[in-house]
Amino acid sequence: MAAAVVVKNLRKSYGSSIAVRDVSFEVQAGEIFGLLGPNGAGKTTTIRCLCTLTKPDGGELEVAGVSVLKDPRSARSKLGYIAQEVALDKVLTGRELLNLQAAIYHLPKAIANQRIEFLTSILGLTEYINKKTGGYSGGLQRRLDLAAGLLHQPEVLILDEPTVGLDIESRVVVWDFLRQLKSTGTTILLTSHYLEEVDALADRVGIIDAGKVIATGTPSELKDRLGGERITLRIREFTTSAEADSTKDLLMQLPFVQEAIINANQGNSLNLVVHASDDALSQVQAALKSAGLPVFGIAQSRPSLDDVYLAATGKTLMDAEMATAGSRNLKAEKKQSMKN
């Protein structure tokens, strides 16, 4: 399979802040590739560079076999871009927006009309298409944005956080649509900081942290690579750290427990990494019972993408989100990105 998207050694800084340090990944034709990482990891900058909106400091970019830097206009005709924030002209109706979209992609009127009718129909927009977009709900806006991004039938559809801010129902609609779109042969590259979104949609995942891709593979591969299983345990609703420490020491003596991490953010719950076995859960419960400790909650699971992220970076996605949320100056970043 040929690569539909190639990103090689991409670098981009805004002033003194490094947005993308060294990002490399490939998206194969016809697959859904998810770029997973916390806010501020460099996902949007990578996407903006691919879509010709931001000039990178270095690296190579290809979309459908076309060099983005050498032939940006040709690359633009091959990609569809759905931005994180839906930007509509609220004075225009949905149809008028799609007509404008058809004009800037040079579609003949008859073909544009057919496609608008088709996309409107399958995206459930028929009832709203002649109404001004200013009255659209978030879900409708996103669906119209999808129609606009697909109108010129791009080979590669690039979506930046496609379901951020959407309610559950609208999110599922978008997911279903993207899965169906994949079946038509369209290559899809999406960024997300939602683990479940990437897990549910992506054939392959690239995990990005601090401007670098730190792991690539199918979600199963990445999880299997970690090996073992996870047991999440809460002795009480709010366990003291002293009790959590002593419980950790107790459980580490069990031969199948490889690692135990106390998660202070979750009421000092314990996350155990264990060798896969049928009775690990019951043995942990038995050990707790014999030590006279209660069990508030216990669950066994396979590693998640968050575990993959944790293993690679030493922090959970949520922790990374919290850390960047405090340190980012979004206003300054937006200003910088407008300058470049």
Partner: peptide
């Protein structure tokens, strides 16, 4: 007829 995504055939139209 269409109205399902299966009928969406990317790049099927030959644009002049």
């Amino acid at each position: 007829s269409p109205k399902t995504i299966a009928d969406w055939r990317p790049r099927a139209d030959r644009l002049p």
